[in-house]
């Protein structure tokens, strides 16, 4: 077999997901956090496509299509929320936007 094994794609997807997860955890800029979420969504897409290729079933491509559509919708609404937060507080730091948090 000369093709790239499934394992390599899964490892690549896991590494990308890990990078995105670390970014979500350590970055405080809401925009960069959203970019890292996009990275994690891409890693999930890669997993879908890799298994789809392994099974020879094109259904995974349809799922990846929906993931892309949902990610676009998420980016639009998320960025609108970021703009609204910036307008009211002049900052996009996710630690400062916790008005709804319980006191204490």
């Amino acid at each position: 077999m000369s093709t790239v094994p499934l394992q390599w794609y899964l490892l690549l997807a896991a590494i990308l997901f890990g990078i995105g997860l670390v970014g979500v955890l350590i970055k405080r800029n809401a925009l960069v956090v959203m970019m890292c979420v996009e990275l994690m969504l891409n890693a999930a897409n890669l997993t879908f496509l890799a298994f789809s290729r392994q099974q020879g079933n094109v259904g995974g491509h349809a799922i990846a299509f929906f993931v892309i559509a949902v990610a676009a919708a998420e980016a639009a609404v998320g960025l609108a929320i970021v703009i609204a937060i910036y307008r009211t507080r002049g900052s996009v730091n996710v630690d400062e936007a916790r008005e709804l948090r319980e006191e204490g």
Binding site: T3, V4, P5, L6, Q7, L10, R53, Q54, Q55, G56
Partner: peptide, 8 residues
């Protein structure tokens, strides 16, 4: 997943 083969 080691050794999983891709479908043709």
């Amino acid at each position: 997943v080691a050794g999983a083969q891709m479908a043709t």
